[in-house]
């Protein structure tokens, strides 16, 4: 998921190539992209394209990894053996997504360690959605339904993104995301049809996750300066607002089907547009969360940094052992 433009773009200018590119190569590159050719790691590419991709893919990878935390919060408390197994498998999938994506980004000349360092130092961003708490079991349903649902909307177009390794990672990932979305919705369906207490949990989860889910698609198009370039380079294939609208149109009937209220009094079917009109998104909240001021931003980063630092001796041991083996093999 989580491929939105997350820079606090009020502060930062769009990426500018450091040196002027060879116009002939650039024109050839642009023509290939326009013809829907895949760009592969060995191909020449403009520096700004490479940088934008590294930023986007690594943000996406970080989001998968940080995203393990809010759901991981409920694995040990899942209410049945089946739910526990499904959730553990789902969170494991997200880790796998992180792994493919780090590998895809590495083909652009960065390393996983560098990317992780950028995350831990706060330079790299991850999806704003994971800075919200999972309070009840229903939040696990809401995340699968809404967050993975939004991820699918974001990612399906990226299966045709111009960079080959990224597009191929997306194909694998999208298959799993639709399973995640279904299991989440099924949790919500069960709770919504359950006891009064369960129904309350489900409604509360929708109330709390709805707006942050809409923010996952990123700022509105008129405030998304890098979008046009990314669209032209086919790094992005649909605008933030287009995907957001699609998500709302698909999700509202799903909420109605299980008798839950979408927390937006302005939500209304618009016959002329063939889409739902919806209320104003609190962009101030979005930018605050992007800046690292989300409710659980500190907890999420602490957890990642703690796991990384406490695991340092394990990684060192693995490397030391591999070195010893190499030396021994060479001596034989």
């Amino acid at each position: 998921m989580y491929t939105t433009e997350l820079d606090d773009n009020k502060k930062k200018p769009a990426t500018v190539p450091s040196a002027p590119e060879d116009p002939v190569r650039l024109a050839a590159f642009e023509a290939r992209v326009a013809a829907d050719d895949f760009i592969e790691p060995k191909d020449w590419m403009p520096e700004a394209y490479r940088k934008t991709l590294i930023r986007q893919i690594s943000q996406h990878a970080h989001s998968e990894i940080v995203g393990m935390l809010p759901e991981g919060n409920w694995i040990t408390r899942a209410p049945s053996l089946r739910r526990k197994a499904v959730l553990l498998a789902k969170v494991q999938d997200e880790g796998g997504h992180g792994l493919y994506l780090y590998a895809a980004a590495e083909t652009l000349g960065t390393s996983r360690d560098e990317m992780i360092e950028a995350l831990h130092s706060g330079r790299a961003k991850y999806s704003t959605i994971f800075n919200y708490p999972t309070l009840t079991w229903a939040d696990i349903g809401a995340i699968g339904w809404l967050v993975d649902g939004a991820a699918i909307m974001n990612q399906v177009p990226l299966q045709r993104t111009s960079y080959g390794p990224y597009a191929r990672a997306m194909v694998r990932i999208c298959k799993e995301e639709s399973f995640h979305q279904r299991q989440g919705y099924e949790i919500m369906m069960t709770l919504a049809a359950g006891t009064a207490e369960q129904k309350r949990m489900a409604q509360s989860a929708l109330d709390r996750w709805w707006w942050p889910s809409l923010m996952m698609f990123g700022p509105p198009d008129d405030n998304s300066p890098n979008s046009a370039q990314s669209m032209r380079w086919r790094i992005k294939r649909e605008t933030n607002d287009q995907i957001r609208q699609k998500f709302i149109d698909v999700t509202v009937p799903q909420a109605e089907a299980i008798d839950l209220q979408v927390p937006d009094p302005a939500l209304k079917w618009n016959e002329t547009r063939g889409s739902y009109d919806f209320g104003e998104i609190d962009w101030e909240e979005f930018y605050a969360v992007v800046r690292g001021e989300g409710p659980l931003a500190k907890e999420r980063m602490n957890a990642r940094v703690k796991a990384w630092e406490e695991g340092a001796w394990v990684r060192e041991a693995a490397m030391a052992h591999a070195d010893k083996r190499r030396v021994r093999a060479a001596a034989e």
Partner: peptide, 12 residues
């Protein structure tokens, strides 16, 4: 351990 292992491969 899920989400907290020393490296991603171990987590998986």
């Amino acid at each position: 351990w899920c989400g907290h292992a020393p490296m991603l491969e171990i987590d998986l």
